[in-house]
């Protein structure tokens, strides 16, 4: 919060990028101190992986086939947790109102929140991948897979930040976000699982490209759409 005040004091209209940067910095430094969000997401993600292990009871061969699906289901569920907490904190501590009072473009709030949400999600994914590799004896250090996870997470968080901004302002709050988010995010899940699977199985790049393209198209379209529409979600 102080950063934004400082910026507001020094310049009449803080630049767009400095506002975005301030928001990201606020979220990341707050999280660095308390580590609530990340620990919750991490523990949850690992528990989900564990549950899948017992729920599915796969042999080594089937497990290889199921890995992309399990990974993405885990990321989707843990991601919801992160999005919810991230927005709820804003609302509860009154930061959202503070941000809205600051003379910054509304979309700076959107981009700031989205990037910090993305950071959290990527950190969780970065931890889950090696642990999954060890637990299931599968090599997940595949550059193609990393790209897919990056693209998928960007799209997920782009839509998720917008929808969680809405969900947090309703009566049902947390519960509503997965209901709103999952049907809309299905193209990401489809493309990401297929692309991940393709890279892990070592398929030719031409086979995987349609799905990568799909992810890129989705990301671009939804970042644009969310940016255009975010104002209506936070106006008072």
């Amino acid at each position: 919060m102080n950063n934004i005040q400082e910026i507001a004091e020094h310049k009449p209209t803080p630049g767009f990028f400095s506002a975005v940067g301030a928001i990201i910095w606020k979220d990341l430094s707050a999280e660095l101190r308390s580590r609530e969000l990340l620990s919750a997401m991490l523990v949850f993600a690992l528990l989900v992986v564990l549950i899948f292990n017992f729920a599915l009871e796969l042999d080594a061969g089937t497990r290889r086939v199921a890995t992309p699906g399990i990974l993405w289901a885990t990321f989707a569920f843990a991601g919801t947790l992160g999005l919810n907490r991230s927005m709820a904190v804003e609302k509860d501590r009154g930061c959202l109102d503070g941000l809205l009072l600051a003379p910054v473009d509304r979309s700076a709030i959107y981009f700031g929140k989205t990037i910090s949400n993305l950071a959290f999600m990527l950190i969780v994914e970065a931890v889950v991948l090696p642990i999954y590799s060890v637990l299931y004896n599968t090599n997940l250090f595949n550059p193609g897979l990393i790209v897919v996870i990056l693209l998928g997470s960007v799209g997920y968080v782009a839509v998720g930040t917008l929808l969680s901004s809405m969900a947090v302002q309703t009566r049902t709050r947390d519960v509503l976000l997965p209901i709103l988010l999952f049907p809309v995010v299905i193209p990401i899940l489809i493309a990401a699982v297929k692309a991940s699977s393709g890279f892990l199985q070592g398929l030719a790049l031409t086979d995987v490209m349609p799905y990568i393209n799909l992810l890129i198209v989705y990301d671009v379209i939804f970042i644009a759409a969310a940016y255009m529409v975010f104002d209506f979600v936070v106006e008072e």
């Binding site: 839509v159 917008l162 929808l163 809405m166 302002q169 309703t170 009566r171 049902t172 509503l176 709103l180 049907p183 809309v184 995010v185 299905i186 193209p187 489809i190 493309a191 799909l214 198209v217 989705y218 379209i221 939804f222 759409a225 969310a226 529409v229 209506f232 979600v233 106006e235």
Partner: peptide
Amino acid sequence: GIEDPDRRARFGAVYTIIGAISVPITFLS
């Protein structure tokens, strides 16, 4: 989950637009 008619209308419109964009993409996927 929203009692204020203005907010309900705004959020409804936003979600309709997001949903409308995603459905054709889902179909193609």
